[in-house]
């Protein structure tokens, strides 16, 4: 078994004629917490979306828990992954979205239990008990029967986290999960992530603009620009002694707000 939870091996990704990643290499260890920072359009979301199988790749190989994601081996030959293979791989991951993407036609509890029941085959009682437990951990036990439209942004995002956790993923993909929130609601969401990171049970990849938070919880911070990792290292190094001019310029732009 590989020591890595996620491996990008010479991956190329392009949109039409626009090459975003070229021969891109990137590994993440099991239970590592990695923050990805960088300017808009640098490919941060695309990285997560490739892992979540929301975007395909054009060349190279992606492995998740040692298993190739976009290719499957059949009779000794590598073939493009089919839906069945993808579904097997997706089970390792959970994703939380910038715009929540809760299911508006379901109550909060059903948002959380629907997939465990119909995908994992949990019994209704089991899924319900787990769901309520998760709602307690994100501080929303009293909102089980509310609809998403009745929640604040921060509450919606905490439901989004609980929904992802209910599928018992080993890898959590968090894409700017506080960017759509009013400033006063950011902390309640980050607090939940802080607790998760402390459990040391998840590999976490978080794309974020919350620099203080990234510094506090990350094992490693990667600065992305134009589809490449310009600089990476422990948070102290990236934030205190950035080596690269572009990293410095990017971090300065944050200090100057």
């Amino acid at each position: 078994m590989s020591d890595y939870a996620v491996e990008f091996d010479n991956v190329t990704k392009q949109f039409g004629d626009n090459v975003l990643f070229e021969q891109f290499n990137f590994n993440i260890r099991k239970n590592e917490v990695v923050s990805i920072i960088g300017p808009s359009g640098s490919g941060k979301s695309t990285l997560l979306r490739i892992l979540m199988t929301l975007e395909g790749i054009d060349a190279g190989m992606v492995r998740v828990q040692g298993e190739s994601l976009w290719h499957m081996q059949k009779g000794g030959a590598w073939l493009p992954a089919d839906e069945r293979h993808l579904r097997k791989c997706r089970g390792h991951m959970g994703m939380v979205f910038q715009h929540f993407n809760l299911f508006p036609h379901m109550t909060v509890l059903r948002n959380i239990t629907e997939a465990p029941i119909h995908v994992l085959g949990q019994s209704k009682e089991e899924a319900r008990a787990n769901g309520l437990e998760l709602l307690r951990t994100v501080g929303l036990a009293d909102k089980a029967d509310a609809y998403p439209s009745q929640l604040s942004g921060g509450q919606k995002q905490r439901v989004g986290i609980a929904r992802a956790l209910a599928m018992r993923p080993s890898i959590l993909l968090l894409d700017e999960i506080t960017s759509a929130l009013d400033p006063e609601l950011v902390d309640e969401v980050l607090e939940v992530i802080r607790k998760l990171a402390a459990e040391d049970a998840y590999t976490m990849i978080l794309v974020t603009h919350e620099m203080y938070f990234a510094r506090e919880i990350s094992d490693r911070v990667c600065f992305f620009d134009a589809g490449a990792i310009v600089e990476e290292g422990p948070p102290e190094q990236i934030f205190n002694q950035p080596k690269h001019e572009r990293t410095r310029a990017f971090l300065n732009s944050f200090l100057n707000i």
């Binding site: 979540m52 929301l54 979205f97 993407n101 119909h118």
Partner: peptide, 27 residues
């Protein structure tokens, strides 16, 4: 229906059929 709904359904590992009938169609 917002594209994000399908993406969330994929992320939760629903099958294509479940995505259609449980997530997209009711909305």
């Amino acid at each position: 229906v917002d594209r994000g709904q399908t993406e969330a359904a994929i992320a939760l590992n629903f099958s294509p059929r479940q995505r259609l009938w449980r997530i997209i169609m009711p909305q």
